[in-house]
Lab assay of single mutants.
Amino acid sequence: HNLTITQGKLFFHYNPKLCLSEIHKMEEVSGTKGRQERNDIALKTNGDQASCENELLKFSYIRTSFDKILLRWEPYWPPDFRDLLGFMLFYKEAPYQNVTEFDGQDACGSNSWTVVDIDPPLRSNDPKSQNHPGWLMRGLKPWTQYAIFVKTLVTFSDERRTYGAKSDIIYVQTDATNPSVPLDPISVSNSSSQIILKWKPPSDPNGNITHYLVFWERQAEDSELFELDYCLKGLKLPSRTWSPPFESEDSQKHNQSEYEDSAGECCSCPKTDSQILKELEESSFRKTFEDYLHNVVFVPRKTSSGTGAEDPRPSRKRRSLGDVGNVTVAVPTVAAFPNTSSTSVPTSPEEHRPFEKVVNKESLVISGLRHFTGYRIELQACNQDTPEERCSVAAYVSARTMPEAKADDIVGPVTHEIFENNVVHLMWQEPKEPNGLIVLYEVSYRRYGDEELHLCVSRKHFALERGCRLRGLSPGNYSVRIRATSLAGNGSWTEPTYFYVTDYLDVPSNIA
């Protein structure tokens, strides 16, 4: 807008934040220059609390790290170098490059900038070799853009010569660093050979998330399962459950009422301010606690030095998902009996873990797994792929695949051998790939016309006998059925096997 004052003059007093240069501009645009008398524009009460600059400061050096910015700028000295009290560095987070010096300023003089007072450097006698002032900004957020400017702080001049310097606002972004852990990993099994893994992005990506790394490792069953005799009275049979499938998407929606109208769909109840505040506090606490764990609990591995020492970490090797089922080394339970199943799973520490690289999504279907087997899954978020990966501390989750139908069934015939004193040795093959492992066998036998009897055969007993022995049988026709019990439950009964026990007292003698 054009402003013209045809008559009258300007009068400025007691404006401590208004620089004289701005008042002189007002004289020019209003056409009143030359009308004012000496005392109409006070030299001592206008701009006496402001830094009124008329020179431009330029930054000469900028260096960044993930949490620091090192700045240096060209030296500046007023005509009387004693008038320079120091520099004021202003900075704040700036997602967009549209910041002005006066953003967030209120009537009390406060604003949204963080201000650092910096002492002037030592003055050199040689004007050509003056030290460049600077400042190291610490405690910054990774991968965050900051708006920065600097200006001088000078003393009051009796001659009211307006001098000083100020830089333009520059924008500097800190470097990326390792992201925080992925949030809320959930693993479920939808079949006997697959596990579905879902997660949420890290709360602090500290860069642009480029991919996720998912490692999985087959877990050995508890050692007590191999040692305890679950045929003993009072000892509860062990059981394991597989990871249940995901709930429906509708039930997972946030901010939804727990109660549904019987007449149909209901609208979600909005969260109160107290609920939102509580969630923010919980989120802040979780982030602080995660940072504490990362800094205190997890110790970084030592990389190899120039002395030739090897990095103890196993090298990563990509495998196809079809090879995942046989990740671990199978060892027989008892070496003397080769027909026992290889369900003991000690994992070799030198073995390469299978892994998958996930790009542009937060889910993965891990296939080719062994049925009813526990897996430990390790999830890392990465925001750099080359020249070397920059990934987060791992988040861990466990899951067990679903049982395989008929995996616990005894394959092959049940054979028998009759000894003296009416002892019958029953023999059968253990299931080759049971659900988890076989903890015991149930032997059901009966003599024709009598009630059915049951015998429990422990895992250890089966390994020693290759089956079991029935003792003290009365003469007669017998039928026997056997079924295995694994961590997933009972298998199917075998087809009945028949044998006849004679009275050993009636056996004919070869003595003449």
Score class of each variant (00 low, 15 high):
203 S>Y: 06
205 P>T: 04
205 P>L: 09
210 T>I: 15
210 T>R: 14
211 H>Y: 15
212 Y>I: 09
214 V>T: 09
215 F>P: 02
215 F>T: 09
216 W>V: 11
218 R>N: 05
219 Q>H: 13
220 A>N: 13
222 D>F: 11
223 S>I: 09
223 S>P: 14
224 E>S: 14
225 L>Y: 05
225 L>G: 01
227 E>G: 10
228 L>Y: 15
229 D>E: 03
229 D>W: 02
232 L>A: 12
232 L>F: 08
232 L>S: 13
234 G>Y: 04
235 L>F: 06
236 K>L: 08
237 L>P: 05
238 P>Q: 04
238 P>W: 10
240 R>V: 13
242 W>I: 02
245 P>K: 06
245 P>H: 10
246 F>G: 12
246 F>T: 10
246 F>R: 04
248 S>L: 07
254 H>M: 08
254 H>T: 07
257 S>F: 08
257 S>Y: 08
258 E>V: 04
258 E>F: 09
258 E>S: 08
260 E>K: 06
263 A>N: 13
263 A>M: 12
264 G>H: 09
264 G>S: 07
267 C>H: 11
269 C>I: 04
270 P>M: 06
275 Q>K: 04
276 I>N: 02
277 L>K: 14
277 L>F: 05
279 E>I: 05
279 E>S: 04
283 S>T: 14
283 S>A: 14
284 S>L: 09
287 K>W: 08
287 K>F: 03
287 K>L: 02
288 T>A: 14
289 F>R: 01
289 F>V: 04
289 F>N: 01
291 D>P: 03
294 H>E: 00
295 N>H: 01
298 F>N: 13
298 F>M: 03
299 V>Q: 08
300 P>Q: 10
300 P>I: 01
300 P>W: 14
301 R>K: 11
302 K>W: 13
305 S>M: 10
306 G>Q: 13
307 T>W: 12
307 T>M: 13
309 A>I: 12
310 E>W: 01
310 E>K: 02
310 E>H: 14
313 R>T: 07
315 S>D: 12
315 S>A: 13
317 K>V: 13
317 K>R: 08
318 R>H: 09
320 S>Y: 12
322 G>Y: 06
326 N>G: 00
327 V>Q: 11
329 V>R: 14
329 V>P: 14
329 V>H: 05
331 V>Q: 11
335 A>P: 12
335 A>Q: 10
336 A>P: 11
336 A>F: 09
336 A>I: 10
339 N>T: 10
341 S>C: 13
343 T>N: 12
346 P>K: 15
347 T>E: 11
349 P>S: 10
350 E>W: 05
352 H>I: 05
354 P>I: 10
356 E>F: 13
357 K>G: 10
357 K>H: 05
358 V>S: 07
358 V>W: 02
360 N>D: 09
360 N>W: 13
365 V>A: 05
369 L>P: 02
369 L>S: 08
372 F>Q: 01
373 T>M: 10
374 G>T: 05
379 L>A: 05
379 L>P: 04
381 A>K: 09
384 Q>T: 10
387 P>I: 04
389 E>T: 10
389 E>W: 10
390 R>S: 13
390 R>H: 06
390 R>F: 06
392 S>Q: 00
393 V>R: 01
396 Y>D: 04
398 S>H: 13
400 R>K: 04
401 T>Q: 01
403 P>I: 05
404 E>Y: 10
405 A>V: 09
405 A>L: 06
406 K>H: 11
407 A>V: 11
410 I>T: 03
411 V>I: 06
413 P>M: 15
414 V>T: 03
415 T>K: 07
415 T>P: 01
415 T>S: 07
415 T>L: 12
416 H>C: 11
417 E>L: 10
421 N>R: 14
423 V>S: 10
424 V>S: 01
425 H>P: 04
425 H>T: 11
427 M>C: 09
428 W>L: 03
432 K>N: 03
432 K>V: 12
433 E>V: 15
433 E>L: 13
435 N>H: 04
437 L>Q: 12
438 I>W: 03
438 I>G: 01
439 V>I: 10
445 Y>H: 08
445 Y>W: 09
447 R>L: 05
452 E>L: 10
453 L>T: 07
453 L>N: 12
454 H>E: 15
454 H>W: 04
455 L>Y: 11
455 L>G: 09
456 C>W: 00
457 V>M: 07
460 K>N: 13
464 L>H: 08
466 R>M: 13
466 R>C: 10
467 G>W: 07
468 C>E: 01
469 R>L: 08
469 R>E: 07
470 L>S: 01
471 R>L: 06
471 R>T: 07
472 G>L: 08
473 L>D: 01
475 P>S: 11
477 N>D: 09
480 V>R: 03
482 I>G: 03
482 I>W: 01
483 R>Y: 04
483 R>M: 11
484 A>Q: 03
487 L>A: 02
488 A>P: 01
490 N>K: 05
491 G>S: 06
493 W>L: 09
493 W>S: 10
494 T>M: 04
494 T>L: 04
495 E>V: 06
495 E>Q: 11
496 P>K: 15
497 T>N: 07
498 Y>M: 15
498 Y>C: 14
500 Y>F: 13
500 Y>K: 11
500 Y>G: 06
500 Y>E: 03
500 Y>W: 14
501 V>C: 11
503 D>L: 06
504 Y>A: 12
504 Y>F: 11
504 Y>M: 06
504 Y>K: 14
505 L>T: 14
506 D>N: 15
506 D>C: 14
